[in-house]
């Protein structure tokens, strides 16, 4: 970890100004990922802009009937917020499937979007990594890639985005509000994270110095029929091998609207419009779910140690959709297969 200076910004404008006033700045909220990255010398900012004094902790209903989540509200406060639990239980479930209570108490909503991949090679300076050091190569290709991507990867990078919360946000079509020197703008969630392509060092489409100030959830919360299913190597405090956020709007047994997003499989929460189209207007049956599952993993490519994820994703999608159709009763606490 290199020496750094720290200021605690009192306003969003001051934070944005402070960021651009230094050569190598980083925003810090809960620090649950950035501190690890700094200790491992993966991130070497020389100036940190502390965000925890910003007035961005509120969770409020919007004029359009949606919900606005402040960027520095903690993951824990968000997951347990009565409006989130009542109207967006998919989001609550996804947040609670991630990390540990201690981490969720520190981690902020904006920070959750900004967490970086858990690729072993990204964290180890002894090995080449294009995301850490562009042009050095991807060690995960041909290496130990149990936790890596099966969808949307490139020859430069097969890392995955590790968030659970973001998978639900993708399914719910949240909007990210950001503020930079040029003022405020809104980014559709599907446009926020990016695929690695030729620039895996870029996780998202934020411009330099832009700060997330809020996440806005649209009115529709799929509060009746939803499921967040997370599969991992232990029951808690482990990143997803595959996770599924499934949300259905049912008219009797017919699916009126559907959302499906996958975690642990790509450089960003993975949505398949084709799969969602295969669900809409169809009966909520296993046969329908299977078709959607098949379409979701269309084009999936294994890297060796993660080949199993393709079949696991299919099965997880079917299970999650079944649980959603059944009313989202199952919890994710024990991998959705509570004995």
């Amino acid at each position: 970890m290199n020496p750094f200076t720290l200021t605690r910004a009192e306003s969003v404008d001051a934070a944005v100004r402070d960021f651009s006033g230094h050569d190598s700045s980083a925003y810090i909220g809960g620090g649950t990922n950035l501190l690890d990255l700094m200790k491992e010398n993966v991130a070497r900012p020389t100036h940190l802009v502390g965000l925890n004094k910003l007035p961005l902790t509120s969770i409020e209903t919007t004029a359009e009937g949606g919900l606005r989540l402040g960027a520095t509200a903690t993951n824990a406060d968000t997951a347990w917020h009565p409006d989130v639990q009542a109207r967006y239980p998919l989001l609550s479930q996804a947040i609670l499937a991630g990390a540990s209570p201690q981490l969720r108490n520190m981690a902020t909503n904006g920070g959750n979007l900004m967490q970086r991949t858990r690729c072993y090679y990204f964290y180890d300076l002894a090995t080449p990594c294009n995301k850490r050091e562009p042009g050095s190569g991807c060690s995960a290709i041909g290496g130990y890639n149990r936790i890596h991507a099966i969808l949307g990867a490139s020859e430069q990078c097969i890392a995955t985005h590790p968030s659970d919360m973001c998978v639900a946000l993708a399914a719910l079509e949240a909007v990210v509000h950001v503020r930079g020197n040029g003022g405020e703008r809104r980014i559709k969630f599907e446009d926020f994270h990016r695929l690695p392509g030729d620039a895996p060092e870029q996780d998202n489409t934020l411009k330099a110095g832009e700060l997330i100030v809020a996440l806005e959830l649209p009115k529709k919360g799929f509060e009746k029929n939803f499921s967040y299913l997370k599969l991992r190597d232990r029951t808690s405090y482990a990143f997803a091998l595959v996770s599924v956020a499934a949300a259905l709007e049912l008219d009797g047994t017919t699916i009126r609207d559907a959302r499906l997003a996958l975690g642990g499989v790509a450089h960003k929460p993975w949505r398949s419009p084709a799969a969602e189209d295969l669900l809409k207007g169809q009966p909520a049956t296993e046969a329908t779910f299977r078709k959607a599952a098949e379409a979701s993993v269309e084009g999936a490519v294994g890297q060796g140690a993660n080949d199993f994820k393709i079949e696991l994703a299919r099965r997880a999608i079917v299970r999650a959709l079944k649980q959603a159709a059944a009313g989202g009763k199952a919890t994710n606490v024990f991998n959705n297969s509570n004995p």
Partner: peptide, 19 residues
């Protein structure tokens, strides 16, 4: 290829949690 253990931290070397 590197002769190196890659999951060398508590996040990726798993031991049970209470759950």
């Amino acid at each position: 290829r590197f002769g190196r253990y890659m999951n060398h931290n508590y996040a990726e070397y798993h031991v049970p949690v209470n759950a």
